[in-house]
Amino acid sequence: MHVWGDDRELHLRGTLDVHSAADVRQRVHAAVDGADGDFVLDVSGVDALDATGLGLIVAIHRRAGRRERRFVLRGVTPPVHRVLVITRLHRILALENAIAA
């Protein structure tokens, strides 16, 4: 998993799963805690996610809310969108530029 960006917007590329979630979590927590306003997580480069990755997205949403920041999931790919719809998280999360399956 490759992660880059700043405290307002991070980009992910690869698979968000049990093997990559810990590194991503550390980077995201620092970003969410480091600024104000919207926090954007661009997942247009994410090809798949598992339950751990999904849990991380929910945790980011909660952490951003506690910091009074809006969490935006940008560039949701069809495989990720499918998981969000199945879990009904697409109703809770702010999605931007999602590509429905």
Rank of each mutant, 00 (worst) to 15 (best):
G5K: 02
D7I: 07
R66T: 12
V58W: 02
V24T: 06
D42I: 09
H61L: 08
G75H: 04
H61P: 00
V28K: 00
L41F: 08
D36M: 01
A30W: 05
V40N: 01
R67Q: 15
A51R: 08
A51Q: 09
I60S: 01
F39C: 08
G34E: 06
V18W: 02
V28L: 15
G5P: 11
V40F: 02
R74C: 06
R63C: 07
R8A: 13
H81M: 08
D42T: 10
V80C: 03
G37A: 07
G55M: 04
L10W: 07
G37T: 09
R27I: 11
F39K: 06
D23N: 13
R74H: 12
H2R: 15
L49K: 02
G65N: 10
V32G: 07
R13S: 15
R25W: 06
G14W: 10
A21V: 15
L56K: 01
R67H: 15
P79E: 08
R70N: 09
R63H: 15
R62A: 11
G75K: 06
G14S: 10
V58N: 04
D33Q: 06
R70E: 13
G65T: 03
R62F: 05
W4C: 07
F71T: 00
L10C: 13
A22D: 14
T15Y: 02
V76T: 11
L49F: 04
E9D: 04
D7L: 05
R69A: 04
H11C: 13
